[in-house]
Design a protein around this nucleic acid. Sequence first.
DNA 1: AATGGCTCCAACCGCGAATGG
DNA 2: GCCATTCGCGGTTGGAGCCAT
Length: 249
Amino acid sequence: MGRQPCCDKLGVKKGPWTAEEDKKLVNFILTHGQCCWRAVPKLAGLRRCGKSCRLRWTNYLRPDLKRGLLNEAEEQLVIDLHASLGNRWSKIAARLPGRTDNEIKNHWNTHIKKKLIKMGIDPITHEHLQKQATTTPQETPCEVKIQQSVNVPEDGVSGNENGSSAAENSPSNEAQSIIEVNADGEEDPLVSYILSDTFLEDWSWNFPAVEDSYCDFGLSSTSSEDSAAWFMDCKDFGVDDFGLGNCIN
DNA sequence: AATGGCTCCAACCGCGAATGG
DNA sequence: GCCATTCGCGGTTGGAGCCAT
């Protein structure tokens, strides 16, 4: 029967988004919240497919996004999580507030990968390249570090379920059951916390309506103005760009 | 100043998962 | 349980900007 295209190719714009399109999309989501993405372009007056709108929102327009390069701590966390989860960028991104899977994926491919290679570490297996060549049974310092700092999240994602990632990314299946410990054999509290569900549920970094898929963003009776003002503070564009000056003041 | 190669990132594509009738 | 539809994810690509020559 064939797969239906996500959008009819005719009349659907592709390529970089304009400020005007961004404005329309943001205005629509601020007003209506996230709903059926397929309907969004039509309702928002955009000549884009819903998929493109979702991507633009999640990767660029979302108000809770951090901008700029990942810092040292975030980078190390990505490395640790990648050792545990493999290329599950969305899972990794879920542990880094304000970062998107696309951003992390890009950063991995452009910075971290090279950095690891430079350090003599295979970015896929997280093993020392020399060790891979000789395949000695002893652990390398790199392995020890990864095993000491990486845990398998509680959601059961082991990085092995599709038969590729974990096999590629873990030195062995043992990694799946490794509890994060430091050199003294104690748990690393930071990594433990970040990998915990408690961290994900912490409202202090979550966008206010994140669990409601932003449906209430800007519409809550108590915080719409604060949310919108905060949103504008987070973006490069100004309040006036979205014609929201009246409601934010 | 010109230009060719490289880097980086926003955006696209295709697939599998999830959902609903 | 089956099928159609929608969503979300991960891999890949295009092109703008940067840098070396």
